[in-house]
Design a binder for these strands. Structure first.
Length: 500
DNA sequence: TCTGCCGGGAT
DNA sequence: ATCCCGGCAGA
């Protein structure tokens, strides 16, 4: 950790030097020497320079104080300032004694920064350093020289603060999945200081702070360039809250992909909270899984036995689970009149309250809160990929298609299935299932804040073929990829790929 | 309104 | 046989 820090610090300082490098091809090691040796680009600078030299030194340093803090700067005075881990030359715009801050116009950066007064020292005190001792440096020069010549001084000065900031940031980062919070506001401010030091949305004085001047490089180095925009004012607390998980939204929605959509605005979160769970109806089981394959396998493996895999018992497991559709609305979901579905069916009165998904005794296995989560570990252990896909193949009419049965079709119509590589066989749609929740169209507006419990209808007696439960090519591939449909679907015939 | 697909026509 | 589409009916 410390080594990383030191490495980053070193790297950062180099970065800062590069960023703030002199305009020309001057070596970055002694920028102020070159600047002060008469290479001042603007003519007014020279005049100011001379005027500054005429200023009495008593004005530059408050009497009776030691160190660098109490220096009075005159507007237009040429000064040096620590900025970006490097000394930069600039002109004093104003010096606010109340805040002990100095607004400096950096000449080579062409920007204005607000610094603490202690970070600024008169340029003429230092300019002669590379060459000859100044005639009237007197007693102050030794105080400035070591500081200004030693790049490490400001860093050492703020090491403790810097470490604290970094620790805090790392804690925040580790606590939150969202990189949005990887850069605290102050950090963000410092990071962008190189572009505009006194932006209106930034606090003044942030750049000049000895800690922040070194911190800026640190943050830009550790967090990469992935924080170009200021963090959303509400985003950070929100994502933090999500990261910690609230008990209300914890019941199986912790894998909400939106939690990882970093640049999504907050309001989108609630939109996608349509979840379908599958509850095992086996007596005294009541296991709730998120995957229909998982529930099928659970029923077969734990209740029906593996023999059902063959032949006529193929679909028997269908009778031992029920689909639980959860639609969550933002509180004002209205009364029961808005409920398009019948009241909770006879099968599961306890389902009115969806139990939290984590399995009780069977969750000893590896926790996979992801796509096919909540597969019981027992079943999971049995379901090596081979057998898993075997099931998919055997139940092509139901395994793959039934993923969509309980979910509003709106969710799936927007899926771009072309993204699923065709070589991935049936895996692709299954894997993409959870992704589909991140690209939803808004479910029907009449939502309810409770659950819809449906059972699998099987009996259909009609001359017309019962509407298939299976996902059809149209839904799978979308209209835009009609060329990937099966021929029958293209001809508006009964789908041949996803049979019922 | 969307969707699956039957029935039928065109080639 | 292949392709296409009107239209019905379920969701």
């Amino acid at each position: 950790m410390a080594s990383v820090l030191s490495r980053r610090l070193g790297k950062r300082s180099l970065l800062g030097a590069r960023v703030l490098g002199p305009p020309g091809a001057a070596p970055p090691l002694e920028p102020q020497a070159e600047l002060l040796e008469g290479a001042a680009p603007q003519p007014f600078l020279a005049s100011k320079d001379t005027s500054c030299q005429e200023q009495p030194k008593e004005l530059l340093k408050a009497p009776g104080t030691s160190g660098l803090q109490q220096v009075a700067f005159q507007p237009g005075q040429k000064v040096c300032v620590w900025y970006g881990g490097q000394e930069c030359t600039g002109l004093v715009e104003r010096h606010s004694w109340a805040e002990d801050k100095v607004t400096v116009w950096l000449l080579d950066q062409k920007l204005q920064i607000c610094c603490k007064a202690e970070e600024v020292w008169p340029a003429e005190l230092q300019s002669p350093i590379p060459q000859a001792p100044p005639p009237e440096q007197g007693t102050q020069a030794p105080a400035y020289r070591p500081v200004s010549r030693n790049i490490d001084v400001p860093k050492r000065k703020s090491d403790a603060v810097e470490m604290d900031e970094m620790m805090a940031a790392m804690v925040l980062t580790s606590l939150s999945c969202s990189p949005v919070v990887q850069s605290p506001p102050g950090v963000e401010t410092n990071f962008s200081a190189s572009r505009a030091a006194c932006d209106p949305w930034k606090e003044s004085g942030d750049v000049s702070d000895s800690g922040s001047s070194t911190t800026s490089g640190h943050w830009s180095g550790s967090s990469g360039v992935s924080t170009p925009s200021p963090p959303h004012p509400q985003a950070s607390p929100k994502y933090l809250g999500d990261a910690f998980g609230s008990p209300q939204t914890d019941n199986g929605f912790e894998t909400d992909p939106d939690a990882f959509l970093l640049d999504e605005p907050a309001p989108r979160k609630r939109k996608n909270s349509v979840k379908v769970m599958y509850k095992c109806l086996w007596p005294n089981c009541g296991k709730v899984l998120r995957s229909i394959v998982g529930i099928k396998r659970h029923v077969k493996a734990l209740h029906l036995g593996d023999s059902v895999d063959s032949g006529q018992f193929k679909r028997e497991e269908d009778f031992y689970y029920t689909e639980v559709q959860t639609k969550e609305e933002a509180a004002a979901a209205g009364g029961p009149a808005a409920d398009p579905a019948p009241s909770p069916s006879l099968t599961s009165p306890p389902l009115a309250i969806l139990p939290p998904p984590p399995p009780k005794a069977q969750s000893s296995g590896p926790d996979h809160p992801g796509l096919e989560s909540y597969l019981p570990s027992g079943a999971l252990s049995k379901s090596a990929p081979g057998s898993f896909w075997h099931i998919q193949a055997d139940h092509a009419y139901q395994a793959l298609p039934s993923f969509q049965i309980p979910v509003s079709p709106h969710i799936y119509t927007s899926i771009s299935w072309a993204a699923a590589p065709s070589t991935a066989s049936s895996l692709s749609p299954v894997r993409s299932r959870s992704l589909s929740f991140s690209e939803p169209q808004q479910p029907p507006p009449a939502m309810k804040s409770h659950l819809i419990v449906t059972s699998s209808p099987r009996a259909q007696s009609s001359t017309r073929k019962a509407r298939g439960e299976a996902k059809k090519c149209r839904k799978v591939y979308g209209i835009e990829h009609r060329d990937q449909w099966c021929t029958a679907c293209r001809w508006k015939k009964a789908c041949q790929r996803f049979l019922d």
